[in-house]
């Protein structure tokens, strides 16, 4: 064996061992198990908390309101479309209350006159259609065509 190799082989060997040790500590657990990423990250993404409970969860307790909603044109809406995320409310129904939006502008999100909206949408001019009243004074949001007065 040439003398140069005798000195170089251990040196290279040491470099390779150092590299493998460094690699062991620098590459995170489960990296590359399925691709060029940390496989455990998939499970971490699954574990995040939910804020929206879903329509079925609401109907478990509020079956009367769910039946009302189903009977009129708002049947396609989810409860949480207007009332906001309800997961916390399903867990602590006494302490966490959901909001009941009653501003005209909130109804206007869907129903204000706008040429961009599809024709099937019922639209009104917010400034002309009973401008000093709240929408819910006449319309029950759960049954919009069952007028109150």
């Amino acid at each position: 064996m040439p003398p140069q190799l005798k000195t170089l082989i251990p040196l290279f060997g040491a470099f390779i061992v150092l590299f493998l040790i460094a690699r062991h500590f620098l590459v995170p657990v489960s990296f590359g198990e399925l691709g060029h990423y940390r496989f455990n990250s998939i499970a971490e993404n699954k574990e995040k908390a939910m804020n929206y409970a879903g329509k079925d969860a609401c109907a478990d307790c509020h079956d009367d309101k769910a039946a009302q909603l189903k009977s009129d044109v708002h049947s396609g809406l989810s409860c949480e479309t207007c009332h906001g995320p309800g997961q916390a409310h399903t867990e602590n129904p006494e302490t966490v209350k959901l909001n009941k939006p009653d501003q005209r502008s909130f109804c206007g999100n869907c129903h204000s006159m706008n040429a961009s909206r599809p024709k099937f949408m019922v639209q009104i001019e917010l400034k002309e259609h009973n401008p000093d009243k709240k929408c819910i004074e006449c319309h029950n949001p759960h049954q919009p065509w069952q007028l109150k007065e």
Binding site: K46, Y52, T81
Partner: peptide, 23 residues
């Protein structure tokens, strides 16, 4: 957007689909 991966892997739909009033 994660396509609500934490929801769809539990059999639920995404939050945006849940609240869309016109499907």
């Amino acid at each position: 957007c994660t396509l609500c991966y934490h929801r769809i892997s539990k059999g639920k739909t995404t939050a945006c689909v849940e609240v869309c009033p016109t499907q």
